[in-house]
Design a protein around this nucleic acid. Structure first.
Lengths: 212, 212, 212, 212
DNA sequence: CATGAATGAGTATTCATTCAT
DNA sequence: CATGAATGAATACTCATTCAT
């Protein structure tokens, strides 16, 4: 009796897909991103992340305080790496003309983000979901600062008192355009076109600023 | 970004009990039957089954996909055990006379079911409620097969072409009589009388069959 | 924004399908059976029954105490009608030979049940689910009584002290065979064959009884 | 049968409140936004929304299919209202100069969103979380269309083939700037400054466009 | 150090029942 | 006398987290 084709056992736990456990925290971050990408934040479970990272649930908690903390850490590391790359880019172009420097920085940012478009767009979204407004502002300020540095590093920097507002504006344009491009056109959007559009917009804005 | 402002409050801490719960699946089956008996299938809740089994709700789902699955599993295991006992009984009496063999099989079945009368009668009912007609028929056929084997295993088996119909009839008489006895007279019914009545009826039928 | 293809409104309540509200209690019983048949007892909701009966939920409770009561009432009415038909049949054949009378009664019962096979099989099941054992036994006894009357109404009734057991046996055979036939072969089963099989079995049993 | 032995115990009696709840769907939308604002989407529970709306959980499901549906509906209604306001604004300024018209539209949008800044920023976020990319793009396209209409409604519209790209750019600037302003500076940001910055940026861009 | 079995708080959703109209 | 909007108790199921091994 009792139909035999019926599922009687609970869904089997996913088996580890990745044997190399490296520094587990990194493995977990990577796994987190992977799961985030194809399940969405709501679909990220500790169990799955641990499984994908190739470790047990217990081990997950050895390395990370909890799910939110892993999310925060993952975002933090990525952003840090991006910020460092941008800083290096500023150094490489220090002393050059404003437009040249800004242009280089835009290219650097667009290329880096686009190279990893899918994870970035997932993380963009995630950040807004889990960050408190304070955390979000802090991170935002970090990028604005970077742009302030950049503007000031050029040979023809805007008037000092205009820099903060300009930096904020430029960051907003770049960041907004990139995220919206990602969100609305997907990861396969035309990078070149995107870069040019941003360049135009920013150039237009800076020209106006210079003129005032 | 967003690495520090995140709420890391631990919510409420869970405190696991340290019970060592035998083979939990079996404990759950047993609990299921117990609850089924005094609440009816509609009254079986996962919470209660888990509680009776001495485990948490979470553990329930660790071992069983869901309530229906546990029901099916419980029935399946019981029926399997009964079928095996009947097969063994057939083997023990292989080559003996038709009536002897049939009689032994009836006794075996009646005794086994009566030994556990209450659970069986609850499960009889349950099966009809949860099984699809196909599943029910399949299980029914399994018992009819068993009776076919039995009839054929005797030294004076009926004509081959009569066996299937006879097997079906005999099963129906035994099964119907037992379930109805259980249902109408409760678990304390007079086993001896029951066995004799069934024996009579089956014997009458088989005699008629032989005469035709 | 906000996708437009998304279901935003809750499932619409079913509209009344039957305008003629007759004596509402009967309309409700009919509706109950209809819903029971294609949704199973678990799927019977007061809302749907009321809708199918063409009345509002409020009206449902004007006529019936609650769902269970409607179920019980429905079964009760059907069974009563069947019992009356059987009584009439007994009267029609009073004084005739045992086998004739029994045979007529079997035919009457099989035909009546088969004419309405689907509802009957749904109600058979339902009764076991909702009746207390006492209620079930009471109803069972009612049919056994009917068979006692029948046996005694024949010109060659069995010895008085054998009647109760015989009545019980005969009812069991008929009832068991019919319900099992319905359950295992569905409502399209071969009525003639069924009737003959039951006749054979019962005849065999009664012959034996007479011989003892 | 079985008409009397049935348990007819009334379980616990429910006692309805007699609240007269305006148009409940709207009350629910409002409640949804309120809860969303201080708990985030993850923290929105049906129970709380219903409670805040002043109705029972059951009533929630009487008006809305489920949580997601309420979210979608809420966003949909708000956006619809905004789009209509913008359309009206376009009509009011039809035939006027490009910059005048664009400027008016920006003011309208900024003022409307800022008047309800907190809910809007919560809904901006939410939409990204719950909308499918298709739904999101669709809504995005709706606004781009609106901007296309606006550009074309001016006395000195850009060359037709430039309109789509320009519309997309302008929307992106406005939308991006507003959402980011909201997200990074909170609802108390300096509206006037924001409007002027956006005006500048858009004006700069359009000037460049005209020059090409 | 790593593990994963056990846990139960928390959530969406259904549906019998009431009572103001 | 009929109605159906409003209700909330009740239930299945998920998943972050712990801790004995």
């Amino acid at each position: 009796m009792a139909s035999e084709g019926v599922r009687v056992l609970p869904a089997t736990r996913r088996k580890p897909r990745q044997s190399r456990a490296r520094a587990s925290s990194e493995a977990l971050q990577e796994a987190f991103v992977r799961v985030l990408i194809d399940k969405g934040f709501h679909g990220v479970t500790v169990r799955e992340v641990a499984a994908v990272a190739g470790v047990g649930v217990g081990t997950f908690y050895e390395y990370v305080a909890n799910k939110e903390a892993l999310a925060a850490l993952t975002i933090h590391m990525r952003v840090k790496a991006l910020a460092q790359a941008l800083e290096a880019c500023i150094e490489r172009h220090r002393g050059q003309g404003l437009l040249t420097l800004v242009s280089a920085l835009i290219d650097e940012q667009v290329e880096r983000v686009m190279d990893d478009a899918v994870p970035w767009s997932a993380l963009f979204m995630l950040e807004r979901q889990i960050s408190t407004p304070e955390a979000y502002r802090k991170h935002y300020a970090q990028f604005v600062d970077l742009w302030s540095q950049a503007l000031l590093a050029s040979s023809d920097a805007p008037a000092t008192q205009r820099v903060p507002a300009a930096a904020r504006m430029v960051h907003s344009m770049v960041y907004g355009w990139v995220t919206q491009g990602l969100l609305t056109q997907g990861p396969d959007l035309d990078r070149l076109a995107l870069r040019q559009e941003i360049q135009s917009a920013v150039a237009g804005y800076l020209r106006l600023l210079g003129a005032k």
